[in-house]
């Protein structure tokens, strides 16, 4: 099934208010943040769609649009097709439901997005920093992140020897 057909199925099920089609770049389905869990559950359990694997989950920061986009790349080992979901959340209060109950792999992938971009996933069982130390300040993959000048007394700048 290609992206347009998948979108039609989703549209028939959830209506225009929840899903819209995004054809800029790779064709994707834009989903309302509050409904992402239901959409994902449907995508997984519907026999014709059967997306049993969350292949990749990443976050992109758009300060100009004032939102953070979470992108889901789904893949179905059973039906052998792929699909892209995009969800935008507000940048100053990035909260959205977690999908870890649908795919277990989301537990770590969401932790990474929380760590690097600061998106809070509601209902996540263990939302802690994963890559950076616990006492780190800020979310580095945001565009306006300022590098700290020192960490526990270790300065992070090196003077040029020249």
């Amino acid at each position: 099934m290609d992206a347009a057909a998948i979108f039609e199925r989703l549209q028939a099920r959830f209506g225009d208010a929840v899903v819209t089609f995004d054809s800029g770049g790779e064709p994707a389905v834009r989903v309302n943040p509050s409904a992402i869990f239901q959409v994902c559950e449907y995508l997984k359990t519907d026999p014709a769609l059967g997306f049993d694997c969350l292949s990749n989950q990443s976050g992109v920061d758009y300060p100009k649009r004032n939102d953070i986009e979470v992108v889901y790349h789904l893949y179905s080992y059973r039906v052998r097709h792929a699909c892209v979901l995009k969800v935008s959340v507000a940048r100053d209060n990035p909260t959205m439901p977690s999908v870890w109950r649908v795919w277990k792999t989301a537990i770590w992938q969401e932790r990474e997005i929380f760590d690097l971009l600061g998106v809070v996933f509601e209902g996540h069982p263990d939302l802690r920093r994963i890559l950076l130390p616990e006492d780190w300040v800020g979310h580095p993959l945001r565009k306006d992140f300022v590098e700290p000048t020192e960490y526990h007394g270790i300065s992070t700048k090196r003077e040029s020897m020249l």
């Binding site: 890559l131 950076l132 580095p140 992140f145 590098e147 700290p148 270790i154 992070t156 700048k157 090196r158």
Partner: peptide
Amino acid sequence: NCGGLFQLAYSVCDGVDKV
């Protein structure tokens, strides 16, 4: 020695001689 390729990184200590 000095951070090398990763001097641009935010999470890398530029050189072990700082520690």
